[in-house]
Amino acid sequence: MITEEYLMQKLSRTMSEKLLRHARGVADTAEKLAKKYGTDPFKARIAGLLHDIARDFDDNEMLQRAKKYNLTVSEYGFAMPLLLHGPVAAVMAREDYGINDQEILNAIALHTVGSEYMSQLDKIIFVADKIEPNRKHAGVEGIRRQANVNLEAALLSCFDESIRYVLKMGFLLHPTSVKARNSLLVDQGSFRK
């Protein structure tokens, strides 16, 4: 069985200190959320630690890895290769770190743009990535409070914050994120007709 100590040794050789600090923060936050929302805390920790293992790749490396791993790359991925770091990291987690648990791999793959069909672990990693203790963005405290009460509400707020940021920066808005957000609203019955 893969241990956290083994993963930390490998990660400390490949990740920047800043990114490693973020990964630890996501792992700690994900573990707490997993315990609160009845999901396997070990899987949450592992997904949290590995979710950004491809984050430091430049655009060329990201696209080369996606091609090497036979990942489908949409026009959004070509325009903004950083969006591929979740799916690329999921393959790396399997191939380079020996993670074979599909729940963990899915959570890693989906942490960037989300999905209409997110498991509890997927949601936890997505939210933990946005609210871990090292995050200082506007609105993070409110989302942290929400996460302690209602995971779906926190997830919706994470999508809202991400969409606002993307619009403010003038980046392409990934349609999967919009669909995921809208799906949450429909599921909660909180949209207005």
Rank of each mutant, 00 (worst) to 15 (best):
K10L: 15
L11Y: 02
T14S: 11
S16A: 11
E17V: 14
K18E: 14
V26Q: 01
A30M: 00
A30E: 03
A30W: 00
E31M: 06
K32H: 10
L33N: 02
L33T: 01
A34N: 04
A34Y: 06
K36W: 05
K43W: 09
R45E: 15
I46K: 00
A47K: 02
L50P: 02
H51R: 13
I53R: 00
F57I: 08
D59F: 13
L63W: 11
Q64D: 07
K67N: 10
Y69A: 10
L71W: 03
T72M: 12
T72R: 12
V73C: 13
Y76D: 00
A79R: 04
V88R: 00
A90R: 02
R94D: 10
N100R: 07
N106F: 10
I108R: 00
T112C: 10
T112R: 08
M118F: 12
I124M: 03
V127C: 08
D129I: 08
K130I: 05
I131W: 01
R135D: 09
G142H: 09
R145Y: 07
N148V: 01
C158E: 01
F159T: 02
V166C: 07
K168A: 09
K168L: 14
F171A: 12
S177G: 14
K179W: 10
N182D: 08
L184I: 10
V186M: 14
V186H: 14
V186W: 07
K193F: 15
